[in-house]
Design a protein around this nucleic acid. Structure first.
Lengths: 193, 193
DNA sequence: CACGTCATGTCACTCCGTGTCATCACTAGA
DNA sequence: TCTAGTGATGACACGGAGTGACATGACGTG
């Protein structure tokens, strides 16, 4: 399997992260990253489709995993309960407890419009996978799509809050709170007027 | 004001759309677009920050307009009602009745990953503007963020369905239906089990 | 009619990303 | 031990995106 240094991908990822933190994303060139990892320009693009992707390859398997979670969910007709179960389980399993790393990574992503767009793309991929899972369970297109989007939105925002929070609350807490907020909104509708 | 042909931007936009439809987005070069519009490469980038943006400049004022809509909304404490009002009003006012044009445009966007990401970026910009409007009205961060995301998601998906629908139903119909789906989900939670 | 302004043109340049072929370590098999 | 094959990397060339700096030329103003 590994004839050269077998850590090629990892070496490129850490080299990239370091350089992005030192000089900024836009100011870092791909040849610089490759050089720090003792590789060449061409090799970088064999492992990552573009310069942005080097920050996102960690979540490559999220779509499959979320599909697995939904498949393995306890049987219920309650779609909202299924959403709660799904995001909660994902929150418990997807994210290692390295908040400081995520904070650095987010800082880089927020610093560049292109990275922000790529991040949104990943979020959309996740939503698509969730939707596919719901469709598989027999929910109709409309329900599956909306439930998936709500899930993805709640999760994405929760990660943001979790990163900024220093109380030690787990990610699940923030996801649930987001879903509860939406639910409360929808339930209160038509009540006050 | 106009010394040359005064339609520079519009000429570039139509030239780009035509070429994208003829040869595909990736296969079309910026010099080609500029040439068809009888302009130069450099002028293209003075009007659009990159090749993708030429397909999106039409919605540049959406964020301001949505903020205006929320500011001018009838007073209510019912956030969900406010969401309904906002997306409904936006649906009525933002989109001209050129479904065929939107269909072509969407076909191009769906054909290229980069364009899809840019599209998601625009959706996020819209969500941010909506959130700002809600914050302005005094809602807390959590509520404002979730309500804004729900609004943006409902709108984005509604446009998709509206484009594909041939019954002549107006865009508002699909937005409302999306919101109703979410509301029904949230209200039914805990009912069936 | 001289002047300033502003959109466009011209030119040169860096960097991203790709196609193509060469290299070289390791493995399998005789 | 030799040899052929495999697969990851290196070397090289190239097109296209996007930018900076300066030139041009039409228009309004005094």
């Amino acid at each position: 399997m590994g004839r050269w240094e077998p850590n090629t991908r990892a070496r490129l990822e850490t080299a990239a992260l370091e350089l992005f933190l030192e000089h900024g994303f836009a100011e870092t060139t791909v040849p610089q990253i490759a050089a720090r990892a003792e590789l060449t320009n061409r090799t970088f693009f064999r492992h990552f489709r573009d310069k942005r992707e080097v920050l996102f390859s960690a979540g490559d398997d999220f779509p499959e995993r979320i599909t697995g979670i939904i498949r393995g969910a306890p049987k219920t007709d309650d779609l909202w309960e299924l959403v709660r179960y799904g995001v909660d389980t994902a929150a418990r399993n997807f994210f290692p407890n390295r908040r400081d790393y995520f904070r650095l990574r987010r800082a880089i992503i927020h610093s560049d419009p292109g990275l922000r767009e790529r991040d949104l793309g990943k979020q959309a991929d996740l939503a698509a996978a969730i939707r596919a899972g719901f469709l598989d369970l027999g929910y109709d297109d409309q329900q599956a799509t909306m439930a998936a989007q709500v899930s993805a939105v709640a999760m994405h925002d929760a990660i943001d809050r979790w990163i900024d929070d220093d109380s030690g609350a787990p990610l699940e807490h923030f996801v649930r709170r987001n879903l509860d907020t939406i639910q409360a909104m929808a339930r209160a509708a038509g009540t006050s007027a």
